[in-house]
Amino acid sequence: MTDQAALPVAEDIIVCRDVHKWFGHLHVLRGIDLSVRPGEVVVIFGASGSGKSTFIRTINRLEEHQRGTIVVDGIELTNDIRNIAAIRSEIGMVFQSFNLFPHLTALQNISLAPMRVRRWSRERAEEAGMQLLKRVGIPEQAHKYPAQLSGGQQQRVAIARALAMQPKIMLFDEPTSALDPEMISEVLDVMRELAGTGMTMLCVTHEMGFARAVANRMVYFDEGVIIEEGPPKQIFEAPTHDRTKRFLSQILH
């Protein structure tokens, strides 16, 4: 933990210092310190209710943090709407329940934001959208509506949609938890390919095979605090904290 904090701040693309969050009286984030270097893949895991989803949602302001600082690519996340917009344009997000727009086709889902936020022409946005659909392996589904796609295909469209805004950082909030088992690998393959391109990724996931193979660092959340972090090898083979050991033994057997 100490050697992470000792890194020069300017190098880190995400810097969180003492982040707190309450839902009513419930103190869900109790002082999170986490810095992420460009190109790093960080897997966040922990029991449900440990605040891991809430934490990554504070990074693009889907949840507001009430204390502490979050700096993304040199921009501090404040109530200033321009800062929020600037940060959101650098961060792509993939949700557990996909959240595709059901009234738009796969291609329209992907091209909407570049056209409306980046002011690209329809031709340019759709061409880029087709490239992304090829990249996630489903160009033939471009003109189908989300309800006509399988869960795995929907999640791949959702990844393509997030990538269409050319983000520097991707947040994954349990991207495979809502999928049938046979569809999990097709989504993880896309994420693995993405990590290989040097994308900075924060993934909340319990796919430990993916974490072991792809993550640079694993972070264990428990009751709103980070109680252990380190390279996957260390976390799997020599976890220092009792709670981490117990949690890993519960999900790994």
Binding site: N60, R61, L62, A85, R88, S89, I91, G92, M93, F95, N99, L100, F101, L112, A113, R116, V117, A158, R161, A162, M165
Partner: peptide
């Protein structure tokens, strides 16, 4: 949320 995350 998805729309906000995309910057709309």
């Amino acid at each position: 949320e998805a729309a906000s995350a995309l910057g709309l």
